[in-house]
Structure formats: C-alpha cells, structure tokens
Nucleic acid binder design. Structure first.
Length: 361
DNA sequence: TAGGCCATCTGGTCCT
DNA sequence: AGGACCAGATGGCCTA
C-alpha cells in the first residue's frame, strides 16, 4: 500500500511542485520582461531618475573636482577630528565634507537604491502571489495576507508530506485542522469554508500554550508536531457553518466551549451535517480580514480550493445553502461560514485527484 | 478610532 | 563603489 502510494502519488506531487516552481519562474520572467508593470509609482520615479542619470554623468565630471576638494575636505576633517580634547583619533574612512555635488550624488544613489528596493519588493510580492495561487484557498479579490499565505503554505506542505508519509487517508477534520494551524480566525474560516467544514470542529476549548486539539482518532495525532490551538483571538468571532460528523467521530464533547452563548449543540449525526463535507456549490459571505470591494470584473473570481479533496465527487451532497448565504441572512445563515463565492479548482486535477482519493475511498 | 496590513523610504551591513 | 538584503520608521487605506 505504502509503496503504491509513493510510486503513484509522489510523482504527481513532485510534478505539481515542479509546475509550481516553473510557473513562478515564468511569472518572474514575465515581470522582468515588462509584461507586468509593477507600479505606477515607478513611472513617477522614472522622471527624477532620468534626471538623475544626467546628474550622474555630471557627477562623473564632478569627480575630479571632488577629488580636488577632497583633500581640502580631509584637511577640514582632520581639523574637526583634531584631538583638541585629547580624544583618540578616529579610525576608518574619514568623513568627507558634504559638498553640493556630493550631496547630489548621494541623492541620486539613494533614489536608485529606492527604485531597486521597490523592484525587489515587487518581485517578492509576485512570488507571494504565485504562492497564494497554489495554497488551498485562493481569491483574487480577498487576498490572504502575506503572513497568512506563508503560514498556510507551510501547513499545506506539512499536510501533504504527512499524507505521503503515513500512506493513509487522513481525517478530513484533521487535515483542515493541520492546514489551519496557527492561522488567524478569518483565514481559518476561509480554509474551513473552502473545505466545507465548520470551524467548531477543529476549535477546542481555549488552551494555554501548548494545548492540543481534541481530535480523537486523528490519523495525525501521533505525529511529533502538535496541533495547537489556532488562537481564536477575535472577540467578534462567531463560529459559523454546520458542524459535521466525520466518519463517525463524535466531536460534540470538547467543543461546546466555543459555541455562541445560548447556541445549541448541533446534531452531528444529522443528514445536514453529513452533507457538510460535500462539494460546495457557492457559499456567500465575507472574509473578515482584509477585503476589497470587488470590481465588476473581479466578481468573476472566486475562492478556490486547490486541495480539492472534497470537490469532485458525490455531487448529490450539495450543501443546502446557496448564493443567499450568511450575508443575506438565509435560513441557514447561522450555520454558514462567512465565505464569499467559494468555488473550487479543477485545473489541477490529476495529482490532486490522487490525493483526493485519500478522502473519498 | 484603533488596529492590521501594506508600500515606500531609509540607513546599515555584507558581499562582489 | 555598487548591489542585495534587511529591518525600522512612517503614512495611507481599510475594517470592525
């Protein structure tokens, strides 16, 4: 079984990783080729920089002059540094007097450095965007923050590695739990929504440092790294979404602590919850994190779940909430995670389907 | 209005 | 000397 896993799944994952890297490199090349204009500000800065190149050439002319007065500067510096108070002489390069030409040169250098720094940060952001597109949840309109992207990517890698290492299908909740480890609540909601899970299911009672989730029978539970509470810091957080009964696990006890005051414990054995880990149709709602009002064209972008383990099969398990989700206050709004236009990817089908098999066999 | 996130500027350090 | 990288400071934007 394990060898079959590694022989069949690992190549796909490796191919996926290779595609990913290649894609990121291509994107970087595109950026370099100017297909992607990094920022208008660059244009703004081109003006002074062009002027500065002129200044630079003037600078070259000034150099001799500078060198000439350099001696004077040094002389002046000597005087300034002079041990008039008996202090030891300063070592290292002497400070040169800031002549107007030198000041100008310094300014030009600084501007060039700023431009380089901007470009560098744009490249870095491009790489982050590439990363956003391959982590489990992606939305062009509601981007994950940088830090959340990195955290989710790390968890994703660990989760996939864990699947390969164990060679067996992990529990869906444990998988999501692993993905959400250390993520903020909005991101946790997002990921859970992408995977059609209720965050209640992987939030345990408030834990002090080091506390673990209560995940009975979790296939990951024996792993050296612990699944700490993703700190539910937001006081506004209201657990949403329908809880579920994942393969007979009872997640009722141990989770009551996070129910809304006055809320009732869901029936984990009901058909509704059984349906919760089914392919999502379209969940409306909003990410409580950074949110940009989508433009008319952007409305066509959706959250996408790259690990589409819950996506492709069993369409009959469509979740009973549709486009009129939490925001519109539909009948199920209390149980609907606040996700906006959650859609699923099918663009990476082959390798993911293999992985999906872990969850659907 | 506070807090989170971000882009940008800036100076320092290290390396070539 | 100049470029890459880094971290701190700052101000803008957005959301709760």
């Amino acid at each position: 079984m394990l060898s079959r896993l590694f022989s069949e799944v690992l190549p796909d994952v490796q191919r996926l990783a290779a595609d990913w890297v290649e894609g990121a490199e291509n994107e970087a090349c595109k950026d370099k080729a100017g297909e992607h204009e990094p920022c208008d500000l660059d244009d703004d800065l081109d003006e002074p920089l062009e002027g500065s190149s002129r200044a630079e050439s003037e600078m070259a002319d000034d150099d001799e002059d500078d060198d000439d007065d350099g001696d004077d500067d040094e002389a002046e510096e000597e005087c300034e540094d002079g041990n008039s108070e008996g202090k030891p002489k300063k070592r290292g390069p002497k400070k040169r007097k800031m002549t107007p030409a030198r000041a100008e040169r310094s300014k030009v250098r600084r501007m060039k450095a700023n431009t380089r720094e901007r470009t560098r940060m744009h490249d870095l952001n491009s790489a982050l965007d590439s990363l956003r597109k391959v982590v489990p949840c992606y939305s062009k309109t509601q981007k994950l923050s940088k830090i959340e992207t990195l955290r989710l990517a790390k968890n994703y890698i660990l989760a996939l590695g864990e699947i390969l290492r164990n060679g067996k299908r992990p529990d869906v909740v444990a998988y999501v739990q692993m993905l959400c480890k250390g993520l903020s609540q909005p991101t946790t909601n997002l990921v859970a929504g992408c995977l059609q899970l209720n965050t209640r299911n992987f939030v345990t009672e408030p834990c002090a440092d080091g506390a673990r989730f209560h995940m009975p029978s979790s296939p990951f539970s024996a792993h050296p790294y612990s699944y700490r509470c993703s700190r539910i810091s937001s006081p506004h957080y209201q657990p949403g979404g329908g809880a579920l009964n994942v393969r007979g696990h009872s997640y009722g006890s141990g989770y009551e602590g996070v129910y809304p005051p006055g809320g009732t414990s869901p029936d984990y054995n009901s058909a509704d919850y059984e349906a919760a880990h089914s392919p999502p149709v379209c969940l409306n709602g909003g990410l409580s994190g950074r949110q940009q009002e989508p433009s008319e064209t952007d409305r066509n972008y959706h959250y996408s779940m790259h690990y589409s383990g819950l996506t492709t099969s069993r369409p009959s398990h469509s979740i009973p909430y549709g486009p009129s989700g939490a925001r519109s206050g539909g009948a199920h709004s209390e149980n609907i995670p606040p996700f906006h236009d959650v859609h699923l990817h099918h663009d990476r089908a082959p390798p993911y389907e293999d992985l999906n098999a872990f969850f659907h066999n």
